[in-house]
């Protein structure tokens, strides 16, 4: 699905810098099949994959820009714009659906005033669906900035939402 970010003013990571990007790329050049590790490194550094990064990667790996662009857009993880200050992922897969995930997702959307896949107007939270965190016996589950949370109920979700909106 497309991940739309309504607000691009608040990047949490460093601003685009060609030299930094170049060193991210160089670090992985001696690996077999280096493109995904490079893209992960760039996203970890900048929070998203800048268009200028695609050009740089293509030149360095001697592949076309279209190939790089194709890979960036194929994988759900890679962002083309910065996310909000916090990223809240709600699991929307079957085990979490069975355990009451649907009304929780609706509650999160209503309280944040966004739909899944978008960022709040103030740039505080990007709310995203995720298809399985592997926490299916303690469902429903979520991940806030890399921290996993299980056995979600409205009260536990509200605590997460408050934390994310800070």
């Amino acid at each position: 699905m497309s991940v739309k970010h309504q607000d691009r003013r608040r990047a949490t990571q460093t601003r685009w810098d060609k030299d930094v990007a170049q060193s991210c790329i160089r670090e992985h050049l001696d690996r077999e099949g280096p493109l995904l590790p490079i893209l992960h490194a760039l996203q970890a550094e900048f929070g998203y994959i800048d268009e200028a990064a695609e050009v740089l990667v293509a030149e360095t790996l001697n592949i076309t820009r279209a190939e790089v662009h194709g890979v960036v857009t194929f994988y759900h993880d890679f962002r083309r714009e910065p996310a909000g200050r916090h990223v809240l992922k709600l699991c929307r897969a079957e085990a979490c659906q069975a355990a009451g995930g649907d009304p929780l997702a609706a509650r999160a959307e209503a309280r944040l005033g966004v739909t899944l896949g978008t960022t709040t107007a103030d740039g505080s939270v990007t709310l995203e669906p995720v298809y399985c965190l592997g926490l299916c016996a303690t469902a429903p589950s979520a991940m806030l900035d890399g921290r996993v949370v299980g056995r979600l109920d409205p009260a536990r979700l509200d605590v997460l939402l408050t934390e994310a909106q800070k």
């Binding site: 077999e32 099949g33 280096p34 493109l35 995904l36 590790p37 893209l39 992960h40 790996l61 190939e67 194709g70 890979v71 194929f74 994988y75 759900h76 993880d77 890679f78 298809y131």
Partner: peptide
């Protein structure tokens, strides 16, 4: 270790191999 990038289809073995090679899965 190689990290995937959020594509369910890469659990299919041949698309996983393409992903490891640095391609679309």
């Amino acid at each position: 270790v190689r990290s995937g990038a959020g594509a369910y289809v890469c659990g299919e073995e041949t698309s996983l191999l393409d992903s490891l090679e640095g391609k679309r899965g």
